[in-house]
Structures are given as C-alpha cells and as structure tokens.
Nucleic acid binder design. Structure first.
Length: 599
RNA sequence: GCUGGCGUAGCUCAACUGGUAGAGCACCUGACUUGUAAUCAGGAGGUCGCGGGUUCAAGUCCCACCGCCAGCUCCA
C-alpha cells in the first residue's frame, strides 16, 4: 500500500467484499484458462451484479467439458491459497511485460490507460500469473470460498460488433459452499417465475415457429391484455388525452420524411413492389412498410387540421399494433417480440409547457407502477451516434428534458448516447425475475420531428409557431409489461387483473343449479367466474383452482344451497384460506371492491 | 446477425457405446356422488423440429435449414 492510499477493511459482511472476491475469481479463472489452454489471449474480466466474467480470445470455443475442467482447476487453486501481490510499473515496463507475453489486447488497454493520463499501472500477480488491475484484491486465493462457472457466450471486443468476437466465460463466487447453494436454489426459484414457463402453465399465451416473435394470446392472456388496455384508456381520458387509431401500413415516403428510412430501416418489415426490377436491392423495391412506431402517423394526423395554441398540449393516445424486424437472436418470450402494441402517446405542446408536462407524466408513471408494486429505476439518455437533427436542436432538447427531470426530484442514472434517434429520453426500467432489466415506460422529447413535418400552431399573436413533441409510453408495450407482471406476481394476479377471478366448485352434482345461479349473478356484476363441473372430488377441484392460481374457489355444498351462500377459499395455503359461509350478495359486494382497477 | 447449447405425445421427461419409441399428467369412455391440493379402471395419442447424407440398420452419427435457450450487438 502506498502513502496516499485509502485504507478500508473488508470482511465478508461488507457488500464490497463479495465483489472483491468475484474479481479475484476472475483472475483465478483467467490464470487457470491460460494454463489449461496455452495460446489463449486474455482481455478483461470484471465482477458483475451476481458474479463475474472474463473475455478470452481463442480460436476453438470452450466446450461445457472445458468449463468443468476450468472450474475444477480454479477451485484447486483456491485450496492452494496462493498469495496475491501488487506492484506498480511504468508504461514502458507494462508494454515490455505484456509485449513479451504476446498479449495484444492487454497492450491495447495499456496504451489507453496511459493515454488517459495515468502515470503508473498496478499489477496483480498470483502464482506466477500477472494481470493489471485497479484492484483491490484479497490477500490470497484462499479467501475466495468457491467458484462456479455458469456459461460461455460470445462477446465482442470492447462491445463493438465490428470487432473480434471473444469468448466470455461467466461465473460466480461465494465465501462458502452454503452461500453458493443458496444462490443456486434462489436461481431455481426465479426460473419458476419465468413468464415463458408460467405463460404455458397458466394458459396465457403461446408462440408458433410460423410467426417467430409474435404472440398467440389465449382467452386468459387476452383478458389480461384487454384489462390493461381499458385501464390505460380510462386513465388517459381522465388526464386530458384523446385516443385515436391510424393505419398500420404506409408508403415509404412517410418513412423518408420521418427519418426512419435512413436510421431505422433495418428494423422495418418492407412490402416489396411486385412491379419493381428484382435486380434492385430490397430497399429500392420497397413501396410500403408496416409501422415500427406510431409517431409519424400522429404527426400526419396533427398536420391534417390547423391547430390553435388553445388546443395545446394536444395529447394523442394510440394502442395500435407495431412491427419491428428484430434480429433473431434477441427475441425472448414476451419481453422482446416483433409484433407488439404500445400504450403510446404523442403530446404536442409549447416549449413553456414542457416542465409541467414531464412532471405530470412522471407522476402518472409512478402512480401506475405503484398500483402493481413495481419498483423502477429512471435513466436519462442523451443523443446517440445514429441521429437526425442538428446539435443545436439536441442541445436544446437535452437541456429542456434534463431540467424538467431534475425538477421532479426523481433520482436518475445518466446514459450517454442512449437516446432515440430523434431525441433524448427518460427511460423507466423494471427488472424481471432473474434480474434482467427491461425498459418499460419512456418519456422522449423531440424537437426534430416538428421541423421535418412542418408542424405548426397558431399562437395568440395570430402567427404560426412550431410545437415540440413528447413521445411517451407508461407500460411501454403491453407484451413486455405483461411479461414483467407475470414474473412480478409469479402468476398470482390480484383479483382485478386475474383472467378468472373465481372458480365455483359444487361438491356434488345436485348443487350445480345453485352454482350456475351464483355464476350468473356474479357475471351480471361484472365478475369473471367459471363453474367446475368436472366429475371429480372436491379436493381435486380445489387443487385445480390452486394450480391455475385463481384468486378464489367458491365451494358450494348443501349448506350453501340452503343458505343462498358460498364458502370462498382464498388462493394460497394458510389456515385462514377458508373464509367460511358468506351470503351471495355480501360476497359479490366484497369481490366487486377487489375487482376495481386501482389507477 | 454473432458465439455456445438445445429440439422425442398437448405438458414434463425416459430410451446403454446406432438395432426400429416409453412413463406420469392432460385428453376420451365407464364406474364411483364425494366438504377444501390428485377416486379407480380402460382407451386413444408420436412423419422423434424440417430436408438431405453415412450405414444392412439413424431418435441416436454428419451437413444444411427452421425454431427455442443463455450471452453479445441492438431495443419497448
């Protein structure tokens, strides 16, 4: 340790400590890999949220068997308890060292580090294997309890797909085997919540190879979808929006005007002109495209009629179907699809109205997420490389959106270069069951589109002015949002959202008449119920209802028929699950309350 | 799109180093009339993702394609 260093004592209880041993683990794995597979080049290997990875350059891929061998050797090195030593070297020494080792990628990083103004480089060595690293590392490999390798995957050098593809080995490390076992169990639990698994089990949706990335919604899934649609519609209407519908298919002239043709075409499904010369490239033969976003249609809609400043903010809401030709490798259940519907809106307003509108929107988004108990993180994303509009407009848009965001007091993370091609945005992310974060809601500020579409409103001065546009979605897309909800609730939807809210269970056939009457009464009250007339025992029917995660099973035997009542059983096990005999009208009143949409 | 893995009945999964596909659940039929997580018996159900190839013989080996999974690039 040098004289200016900071001293921090890490014990296994520190949250930093686990990160530290995972970084140690990355070094251990890399050293083992180079021992087992001579000629493999090392690159970088950081710790992640629940483990670490290390990227290697090697001609042959690592097989699952290789991974086992690496894991075994890594854990042996832990047992040997090899010390880590640290020393500092100059640029020349570093270049000399990694040059002699023939580590091309390391040399590249060394250059970068010193170009950024570093004067020395810290090296960490253990068992004769050396890597440079900011550190800190533990005193010896023995401090890492156990290493488990989880997968291999391709990754591009410096995250750029134009660069060489490396092989990334993922793994994790814990202080004890017990911690590792607990983590494995937790991973298994998380996988039980996977919406793709639950979607099948609860009969919510399906996919078919004939339509990759497009959802078949079952009756249950469609119910979820339409409840969410209706809830959003109602909320939008209450907040000054109007809902409109626009075409799905447009002449490419629209996309040229909006800028999608230049910046987004590879994601668009093109309709080719049958008359066109087949020798021409596809984009030149294209005459129409399915819309990948609603914005251009809304801009067209806006300009169809003269607008007055008195109409602003004009809030257009749409739930139309969108198609995006996503790369095959990115499709994933409901969270990444090719055909989807957003709870989209475009708000046309004056610059002076931006701050209030953004504040109102963040409030609305928080209200909706709260209703589901979802926790989110906000990201502020600035201009990307692939963009339209000049820097002056972007400066203005970024400054305005940032100011509005800061006024709300919401904590946020800055994501440079992550904005939409037409404007900066605030994204709202929610994590899925295995911790992957998905973008749901978004607020995007756009000065470019009004220019391109020549949008105007007549001000109080009787002159034409240019409005600004806010693109926003709260759920994001219905598909992704439902995927997240399934995992969030583990399929146990609250009454208001459950596709089937109650199953009526007659004990034997002679009670079916009252069961049907109860069903009719409940349906008349707007509740979604089914009668289980299967020829099976009560216990079996209860089990079916439990497995289907229906909020209530309403048992009807002779007592209930006699009393014009039901005996509800709540989904779940506790001893208070059985609610006892309740008169039908009282029960309908109770359930109707629980069925109310909370936003 | 890239790297790796996977694809057997509606679902979950078996089938030794190649020898011609099997279980449970679900489904259908019948019996049983049952009070809070599985009643019993019988039956039906598969071009082993698709197309080629190797072989006397392919679910099993090889090639190409399609789809799915993990990750990367990209994104709601």
């Amino acid at each position: 340790m040098n004289e200016n260093g900071t001293l921090a004592i890490f014990t296994p209880k520190n949250p930093e400590a686990i990160e530290l041993i995972r970084h140690d683990a990355a070094h251990i794995v890399a050293s083992v890999v180079q021992k087992l597979f001579p000629g493999t080049q090392v690159t970088i290997g950081p710790s992640t949220d629940d483990g670490f990875y290390y990227d290697f350059a090697r001609d042959k891929p690592f097989t699952p068997e290789d991974l086992e061998a690496i894991e075994k050797a890594a854990n042996e090195q832990i047992k040997q308890d090899v010390p880590f030593t640290r020393r500092e070297v100059s640029k020349e020494e570093a270049l000399d060292l990694f040059g002699k080792l023939g580590e091309k990628f390391k040399l590249e990083i060394v250059e970068d580090i010193f170009n950024k103004g570093a004067t020395t480089l810290s090296l960490y060595e253990h068992g004769g294997w050396v890597d440079f690293c900011l550190g800190p590392h533990g005193p010896s490999t023995g401090r890492v309890g156990v290493i488990k390798l989880t997968s291999v995957a391709g990754a591009y050098w410096r995250g750029d797909h134009r660069n060489a593809q490396l092989q990334r080995i993922y793994g994790t490390a814990f202080f004890t085997q017990k911690d590792l076992d607990a983590w494995v169990t937790q991973q298994e639990e998380a996988r039980k919540r996977d919406h793709r698994k639950l979607g099948k089990e609860l009969d919510l949706f399906a996919f078919h190879p004939a339509a990759p990335g497009a959802v078949f919604w079952t009756a249950n899934g469609t119910m979820l979808f339409t409840i969410l649609q209706q809830a959003m519609r109602t909320m939008c209407l209450a907040n000054g929006y109007v809902e409109i519908k626009t075409p799905l298919l447009y002449n490419k002239m629209l996309w040229e005007k909006s800028g999608h043709w230049g910046k987004y075409r590879e994601n668009m499904f093109l309709i080719l002109d049958p008359e066109a010369d087949p020798a021409l490239p596809e984009e030149e033969r294209a005459s129409f495209s399915l819309k990948p976003m609603n914005c251009p249609s809304h801009h067209l809609f806006y300009e169809m009629k003269r607008k007055s400043y008195r109409e602003l903010p004009l809030r257009l809401h749409t739930q139309d179907v969108l198609h995006r030709n996503e790369a095959t490798g990115v499709l994933s259940g409901l969270t990444r699809v090719r055909q989807f519907q957003q709870d989209d809106a475009h708000i046309y307003l004056m610059e002076s109205q931006i701050a209030d509108e953004v504040a109102a929107l963040t409030k609305l988004i928080a209200k909706v997420y709260d209703a589901f108990g979802l926790t989110f993180t906000a990201k502020f994303a600035t201009r990307p490389e692939k963009k339209i509009g000049d820097d002056a407009l972007w400066d203005k848009a970024e400054a305005a959106l940032k100011a509005a965001l800061e006024q709300t007091g919401l904590p946020y993370e800055l994501k440079e270069g992550d904005g939409a091609f037409y404007g900066p945005k605030i994204d709202f992310d929610v994590a899925d069951s295995i911790g992957r974060k998905w973008q749901l809601g978004t607020i995007q500020l756009d000065y470019v589109a009004p220019e391109r579409f020549g949008l105007e409103y007549i001000g109080s001065d009787n002159a034409a002015h240019r409005p600004v546009v806010i693109h926003r979605a709260i759920y994001g897309s219905f598909e992704r949002f439902i995927g997240i909800l399934i995992e969030h609730f583990a399929g146990n939807f609250p009454v208001w959202l459950a596709p089937v809210q109650a199953v009526i269970v007659p004990v034997v056939e002679r009670q079916e008449a009252w069961a049907d009457e109860v069903a009719a009464k409940m349906r008349a009250a707007g509740l979604r119920v089914e009668v289980d007339k299967q020829n099976s025992k009560l216990a079996a029917k209860i089990r079916d209802a439990q497995l289907a995660k229906v909020p209530y099973a309403l048992v009807i035997g002779d007592k209930e028929v006699e009393a014009k009542a039901v005996s509800p059983r709540k989904h779940g096990t506790g001893k208070d699950a059985d609610l006892g005999l309740i008169a039908i009208d009282d029960w309908i009143a109770t359930m109707t309350k629980e069925a109310a949409i909370p936003y």
